[in-house]
Amino acid sequence: MIDIQQLEFGYTKQNKLFNHLNLNLTEGHICGLLGKNGAGKTTLLKLISGLQFPQSGELKVLNYHSKKREPALLQQLYFVPEQLQSLAYTIDRYHFLYAPFYPNFDEDNFKQNISSFKLDSHQTIRDLSHGQKKKFFISFGLATMTPLLILDEPTNGLDIPSKAIFRTLLAKAATDKRLIIVSTHQVHDVENLIDTIVLVDEGEIILNQSLHHIADKLQFTLADNREDILDCYYSEKTLNGYAVVCKNRSNVESAVNLELLFNAVIANKQSIQRLFCGEENSDE
């Protein structure tokens, strides 16, 4: 669905944010896009949606060049940005004006989403709080049923109950034909939701793996002593000992802790990349 080959991009010609970036994402996944501040997550999402243009390389979304912003692609893509527009329309009016642009728009799903988030459809979007605006645009985005849905920091500004509602609605909206990209710093908000991790660091994709594959290769566990964790990629002191990320030597899959994974990959970029490429196994 998303095919990026040798992409180069920078806000200035001298400082390239992305240099020879390659990425391939397929439908049927909820993909978590993680990275530090300024790593280029939002820029990558903007490049994918056609809001920014690559300086060189190829970027195709559903076999369309996204920079051309052709209606055939745009009607299959919905992007909920982090900064939302303050429109002078009511929710009903926005729905009336914008829903016809999306051929698979699901009216029932929209009504259900709006009622789940307890939004009043007669309210003007401009008058909504940031969190309410987020809820509305997420509701609309989910109901568009576009094959590609991009959510940039969707849980920012949502209260605790709304985060749970968001997770439920997102899980319902996921289908085999849909790719949902969620860029977030709040990894716990999407921990049991995403099935693929894309980790961006210093303009590079340092990890692009399914959670199943990650759990197959890495083990996330608690250890009492530091000695037990010498062989591990990453450890963190907790109240109960050490939270560790190490190579999965058993065939048992542990639950992936996204925060630990993120820190482990950032700290041991090359060795973890080698592990997923299979090089480390062949050394043994």
Partner: peptide, 14 residues
């Protein structure tokens, strides 16, 4: 404007 240009530029029209 960064916040409103997304809505305008990604509206599914030519």
């Amino acid at each position: 404007s960064q916040s409103s240009s997304t809505n305008y530029l990604l509206l599914p029209c030519s």
